[in-house]
Simulated assay, not measured.
Amino acid sequence: MTLEIRPDPEEVGRAREWARSRLAGLGIAADEPLAETLILLVSELVTNAVVHTGRPALLRLSLPGGPPAPPVPPAGADPAPSVTVRLEVADASSRAPVPRCAGREATGGRGLALVDCLADRWGWSPEGAGKSIWCELDRCSQPRESAAPACGVQPAAYEDLLFEAF
């Protein structure tokens, strides 16, 4: 599923609504942790494309086509299968995404730190004359244990740079 994004900050809200409607169509409730996290990631990546490139972009969602995840299995049973949701934002800028170190009073500069903290995986790759930034969330019936406590508490490393989520 693809949505064309104009280089206008108002497009961020439209992108969130579009993503919510796609999730609802699959029976994923707006208050489900997967939906809340995915919508925040849509906001961050679309905002980055709109603000930092000033060019049109494409938002792509690859969603599971099946029913919601099964309930948590009893202790000792095999874990429930997970399904991966992939979000991509492609833009016409060939400039690589650069994580920034935002000060405590800064009103921006934490987008990629949030993506790193919330997504199970993320990265970017050249695409045509531009690039695609992607992230993936694994939908399973058990909450993630490793990433959530680190958000806002421990620093996350990006190659040679260090960031703290506030």
Score class of each variant (00 low, 15 high):
G111V: 02
W134C: 10
I39F: 00
Y158I: 11
P73A: 09
C140E: 07
G27N: 06
V85N: 01
L114I: 15
R121W: 12
A77F: 14
L45Q: 10
R110C: 09
G13S: 04
W122E: 01
L61F: 09
S21F: 12
V42E: 02
T53Y: 03
C140F: 02
A90G: 06
S93L: 05
L58K: 10
L23W: 07
L118R: 00
C140L: 05
R121F: 03
G123V: 03
S62D: 15
G27H: 11
G54N: 12
C140Y: 03
V83W: 12
G13F: 03
T37G: 00
A35M: 10
G103C: 06
P56Q: 04
P71A: 08
R60N: 15
T107H: 10
G103D: 08
W134Q: 11
A96S: 08
G54R: 11
A77M: 12
S62Y: 09
G130C: 06
S146N: 13
R104V: 09
L26E: 04
P74Q: 13
D120S: 07
A102I: 08
W134M: 15
L162A: 10
A49P: 05
R22W: 07
S141P: 01
A157Y: 13
S93Y: 01
G66E: 15
L45H: 10
L45F: 06
L45E: 02
A90T: 13
R139K: 10
T107A: 11
G123Y: 04
T53M: 02
I133W: 03
I28P: 02
C101H: 07
A165N: 13
Q142C: 06
E164Q: 12
P97A: 07
Q154P: 03
R121V: 03
R104P: 02
L26M: 05
L61Q: 13
A92W: 12
I133N: 04
A119L: 03
C151W: 15
V115E: 00
G13A: 04
R22F: 08
A24V: 02
T47S: 14
R100N: 03
S62R: 13
D8I: 04
S146E: 15
V83K: 14
A148C: 09
P79C: 06
A15E: 00
I39H: 00
T37N: 00
G111R: 01
D78F: 10
I5W: 04
G103N: 04
A92E: 15
N48F: 01
R20P: 05
V89N: 01
G111L: 01
R16I: 07
G66A: 12
L161K: 11
L41D: 00
S141C: 05
T84K: 08
W18K: 01
P73D: 14
T53E: 02
P99L: 06
R14M: 02
P33F: 04
G76F: 03
A156K: 11
A69T: 11
P7W: 05
E11Q: 14
E4P: 12
P79N: 08
D116Y: 10
K131M: 06
A57N: 01
E44V: 00
A96W: 07
G76I: 06
V153K: 12
G130W: 10
F163D: 14
E159A: 08
C117H: 12
L118I: 05
L59E: 09
P79G: 13
P155Q: 04
G13T: 07
L63F: 04
A75Y: 10
K131V: 09
P70W: 05
P97T: 06
A156W: 03
